[in-house]
């Protein structure tokens, strides 16, 4: 088992599971549709970034529920553990595939979101870049929680409870970006923070996740 072969394996599996993969995206769209129904139209543009981010946060965490559960149940995780390739490199591939399957579609849904919330295109681009910068660390943080709660009965809700408080900085930095952009300020400072967090979590995350999985399976 090599990392590249495992990456293709993950992508193929996710493609085959596309019906399940689509569910968090449906969730994302349904929750997004609720706010315009209950809030007056004039408030929507100012609410838009926060609503988008919180909805994205929840749907990504929802998608992580199944990240390791199946692998624990069907015994696949033991094969990952015993593979000659380092576990962390395989985990990194799995996360990359997961990002492509679950997070990338959120970007594709952005034009629709812009239409619903009357967000102009240039603001959508800022939102998209905040998502691009923030979601990697979010995914990795959630994956750590998923690894720690893998195989537990209440794993799904536990994953949310563990991750949400720890994810506040990602949420706040991202909204600082959109806030500053809306006020015509340069938003490089919060963007660099998110980038730094993404780099640190991408380099340390897979190691922490591997160690957490070893604990979970022991």
């Amino acid at each position: 088992m090599t990392p590249s072969r495992y990456f293709i394996f993950c992508l193929r599996l996710l493609l085959r599971q596309r019906r399940e993969v689509a569910l968090p995206l449906f969730f994302f769209l349904i929750v997004l549709s609720l706010f315009p129904m209950v809030f007056p139209a004039k408030d929507l543009p100012s609410l838009a970034p926060a609503v988008l981010w919180i909805t994205a946060l929840l749907s990504i965490l929802l998608s992580l529920n199944n990240l390791f559960r199946e692998d624990v149940e069907d015994g696949f995780l033991t094969q990952l553990l015993l593979s000659p390739a380092p576990l962390s490199s395989l985990i990194a591939m799995k996360l990359l595939a997961h990002w492509i399957a679950y997070v990338l579609p959120l970007f594709i849904a952005l034009p629709l979101f812009g239409l619903w919330y009357r967000v102009p295109t240039e603001n959508l681009l800022v939102l998209a870049s905040s998502l691009a910068l923030g979601t990697p660390s979010l995914l990795i943080l959630g994956a750590i929680a998923a690894a720690l709660s893998a195989g537990l009965k209440q794993g799904g809700i536990l994953l949310m409870l563990i991750t949400l408080p720890l994810a506040t900085p990602i949420l706040l930095f991202s909204l600082t970006i959109t806030d500053m952009a809306a006020n015509g300020l340069s938003y490089t400072a919060p963007a660099y923070f998110l980038l730094a967090m993404a780099i640190v979590s991408a380099s340390l995350g897979p190691l922490v996740i591997s160690a957490s999985l070893r604990i979970s399976i022991s």
Partner: peptide
């Protein structure tokens, strides 16, 4: 594991 991850995160939370 969670405590250590949290301890790295807490200063960032405070700052943000």
């Amino acid at each position: 594991m969670l405590t250590v991850v949290g301890s790295i995160n807490l200063p960032i939370i405070k700052f943000s």
